[in-house]
Simulated scan of single mutants.
Amino acid sequence: MNVNWLVESEVFLEYEDELTDAIAQTGRIAKRTPDLGLQYRWQDFPDLYRRLFPENACVVFHGSIGLASELSRGAPWRPTTFCTWENYDCHVYYCRLADYLLNSDYVILPFGELKRRQQFLFDAVGDGARLFVRPNSVRKSFTGQPATSATFDQDIEIMGFYDVPPEALVLVSAAKEITHEWRFVAADKQIVAGTQYKVDGKLVASPDTTPESRLLAEQLAAQYFQPDPVWTIDICRTASGEHRLLEIGSFSCSDLYACDKRAVVEAVSAVASRRWSCGL
């Protein structure tokens, strides 16, 4: 079975050409979506992508959460996306991977309760000065960020800028200092590629990883809990030199940075082909 790839245009511009070249070099077909522009939504123009491949073709998608969500609701191909959304919500995987987590000291509560429960949160998980707050959902309504005791109300207002509903769950933990961040691609319980992507909070994409970060990623990839047959694992190193799990992510929508694109294409295509053959 020939595996096709659908790459959404204008999403991962840094490596879009590199990825499509790797797909072609392995003898597979890569097609890019037309660029809709920010003012349009994919659900308004389904024919623009549905006609790119024959019905029931074996297709792998890589692009935005928006189009991945649309495809998850009813793509005419298989397996298309690797994004079982609920498995990437913090409340689902934190309890399963707690021993590896950076933010293992956490509380989950509704966004609308943050201000009322400020003192409780600082007493429970804070260091007295700073907390870290992020959405529970993988479809992040805001970027995770610190909140200080001195500016707590203002910090929460900034987080809610995009109309976060009060009932939306958020995760609160102690703020921690991170020096390095790496991303690994896991397929069939194996690490198939890795990349550094941040140093001291700044984007520094490099194919270099450390033995410690890869070993931890391999341990996580081999766990009983598998959010999808293919997924991403983010590992960080703290200021004290400890390596911990930062978060997990959907392969379909995760930035691959400096990962070996050919290795990714080969491994993910093998998984997709097998799942297509099994009717999944």
Rank of each mutant, 00 (worst) to 15 (best):
S206C: 10
I23P: 00
V271M: 08
V164M: 01
C95P: 09
S206W: 09
H91D: 15
F251C: 08
P146E: 13
V172H: 13
L71K: 03
Y40G: 06
A98K: 09
P229C: 06
L216F: 02
Q145E: 11
R262H: 00
A217S: 05
A150K: 13
V204N: 04
R116M: 14
C278L: 15
M159T: 01
A168I: 03
D255I: 08
A75L: 01
A68L: 13
E70Q: 13
C236M: 13
Q226L: 11
F111Q: 04
Y162G: 09
L52P: 01
A263C: 01
W231C: 06
P146W: 12
D127N: 04
D260V: 00
R116E: 15
P135L: 10
D155T: 09
L38G: 06
L171I: 08
V59Y: 03
K176D: 00
A263R: 02
L101Y: 02
L169Q: 03
V3E: 05
F152N: 05
A22V: 00
Q119S: 12
P135F: 08
Y40W: 11
F152A: 08
V138D: 14
A98R: 07
R117C: 08
K261R: 07
P79A: 08
K202Q: 09
G249D: 11
A68N: 12
T148A: 11
G126Q: 05
P79C: 09
S149I: 12
G249M: 09
W5Q: 00
T84D: 05
H91G: 14
H62F: 03
E70P: 15
E70H: 13
P165N: 11
A24N: 00
L38P: 07
I23R: 00
L67E: 03
G144Q: 10
G160D: 01
R214P: 01
A129S: 10
Y15Q: 10
V170T: 06
Y100W: 14
T210A: 04
L169I: 06
S250R: 06
V230F: 11
G27Q: 03
I235E: 04
R78D: 15
C58M: 09
N103S: 14
C236T: 14
L97K: 12
